[in-house]
Simulated scan of single mutants.
Amino acid sequence: MKILHIASGDTWAGAEVQVWTLCTELVKQGHTVHAIILNPGRLAEMLAESGVTVTVLDERRFGFGKLLEKIKLELHRYQPDVIHTHRQKENILGSLANKMTISVPAFRTVHGAPEFTPSLKQRLQIGADRFTGKRLQHGIISVSDDLTEKLTGQFPANKIHTIANGIDAESVRRDAEAHDNDVAINDETTQYHVGFVGRMESVKRVDLFLKMAELVHHNARTKHPVHFHLFGGGSLLEEHIGWAASHNLNGFVTFHGHTNIIRSWIARMNLLVMPSDHEGLPMTALESLALGVPMVTHATGGLIPLLNAAACNGLVEKHCAEGYAERVEALLNAPPKVALPDAYTAARNASEITALYESALTG
Rank of each mutant, 00 (worst) to 15 (best):
R221T: 10
M212Y: 03
E90R: 04
Y357D: 11
G251S: 14
H224T: 11
D342K: 12
L230N: 13
V293C: 12
L47E: 06
H227R: 05
D58N: 15
E214L: 12
H319P: 04
T162G: 02
E49W: 03
L67W: 04
T362R: 13
E287G: 13
E279I: 04
A360N: 07
V273W: 04
L237E: 14
F131Q: 04
V104C: 15
W20C: 11
A285D: 03
V338G: 09
T259N: 11
A285W: 01
Q191S: 06
D145M: 00
K223A: 08
K134N: 10
S171R: 14
E326R: 10
E188M: 06
S235Q: 03
H298V: 04
A169S: 10
R123Q: 12
L38G: 01
M295F: 09
F62N: 11
L68V: 09
T189E: 15
E25M: 13
E90K: 09
R61E: 13
V226L: 08
E326T: 00
E59Q: 08
F116V: 10
V17E: 04
S171P: 07
H138Q: 07
E49S: 15
A97R: 03
R173C: 10
T85P: 15
I71P: 03
Q154Y: 05
A339F: 00
V54Y: 03
G133M: 07
P114G: 06
R123C: 10
V226R: 05
V226A: 09
